[in-house]
Computed example of a mutant assay.
Amino acid sequence: MSRHDAAELAHRLGEHAEAVCRHYLSNGRRSGNYWQVGDVRNAPGRSMFVRLRDSPNGPAGKWTDAATGEHGDLLDVIRDALGLIGFGAVADEARTFLAMPQTEPERRSSRATATPIPAGSPEASRRLFGMSRPIPGTLVETYLLGRGITALRGTGSLRFHPRCYYRPEDHGPTEAWPAMIASVTDLGGHQTGAHRTWLDPDGNGKAPIDTPRRAMGDLLGHAVRFGVPTSVMAAGEGIETTLSLRCALPDMAMAAALSAAHLGAILFPPTLRRLYVIRDNDPAGDTARDALAERAGEAGIEAIVLSPELEDFNDDLRHFGLQALRAAIANQLMRQDRLRYLKRAA
């Protein structure tokens, strides 16, 4: 990218300076015509000032850290807040942010225009996922570890959004909460939807709201995927339930369909020969199990049900521990899969 293109991109970000700060410098707050935060890496504090409006002192988006003397523009903010390497990655992140629809006050005050997209559409889900960040070191990692889920390798389908909008069902005012964003994809890896799990900012599980889980986009037949399936894979309902089993079988490809109804309709990869159905211990789980097993049989795929001792496998993981979960799963796997997957996980 040329210097002129970089300057133009920084200028466009400056037109949305407050929205950029609220997203990437979420530990700060507005003070008059400035956004104050600890530093460009989003530390709490008040030593860094970001100009939110053009003024005789300079254009919107320029910032100075009074403690260190550092200064720059909003491209620097995106780079350092996310820890990105290379200007290409910074530019891609900036363009993704600028493609997102802004709040109504932001639209009125900005000369830039964003392509409108329908709320809840597959395109909206792709933009939401694109403007979220990888989970290492974020509240999502804290949330999953708090549920006993420690095997996080291969979880690129999950990301963290620090301020994801939440609209109460009673039509109350829109709120913003941190959230785990999951990419829902088809068999070809194309994102068709997203699933949001809003989180408590203090790291104490899900956010204290009426519906902390919601999906958007085209979901039927698709799933949140972990690993690349070959001849064997497992499929379950919830993300946490599926990841709990993956702690015991980290090399087995798995998919979370997000609900019992969607689990029964999940599409089969063309290479699949054996499907482990991750069952939830409730009537809806039984219905999904029967529907999926019937469809698999009709497709020539062997279906084997994996059943938890408690409500689901996350309950088993937290109550009994990982070694006990592996032992219980071993008795439900085919012998060749015990040798292939449990031996590697030991």
Rank of each mutant, 00 (worst) to 15 (best):
L245H: 02
A328S: 15
R111C: 10
F320I: 11
R41Q: 14
S55M: 01
I301C: 04
E15N: 13
D5K: 15
R111L: 11
L84N: 01
N33H: 15
E15S: 10
S109V: 10
M216G: 12
T242G: 11
L145K: 12
A256S: 11
F313W: 14
L187S: 11
A19N: 13
T115M: 13
P308M: 08
G217R: 09
G83C: 04
G61W: 04
E298Y: 10
Y24E: 06
P173K: 13
R46N: 11
E298S: 13
I181Q: 13
G264L: 05
L75Y: 01
N57G: 09
L342R: 00
L267W: 13
H171D: 15
G120Q: 01
D251M: 05
H23N: 10
L310T: 08
S157C: 12
P122F: 02
R53Q: 12
G120S: 03
P44E: 11
F268E: 02
E298W: 07
A91Y: 07
R30S: 13
K206Y: 00
A256Y: 09
L98E: 09
G69N: 04
A179W: 03
V140Q: 05
A43N: 15
A94C: 08
L74S: 02
N204I: 11
G221A: 06
R30H: 12
G205C: 03
I181K: 12
L325V: 06
D186H: 10
V232K: 11
L82V: 06
G120P: 02
P105L: 06
C247G: 10
I149Q: 01
G300K: 07
Q36A: 14
P208W: 01
T150M: 15
D92K: 13
E169P: 00
Y34R: 14
Y166G: 01
Y341W: 01
L145S: 10
G321Y: 07
T96R: 15
G217E: 09
A296Y: 03
H195L: 09
L258V: 13
E298H: 14
N314D: 08
Y34P: 00
H161G: 10
R318D: 03
T192Y: 12
S183W: 04
G61V: 00
H222I: 10
R295P: 08
E106M: 09
R29P: 09
P56D: 12
G205Y: 00
G300F: 03
P101C: 04
A330I: 07
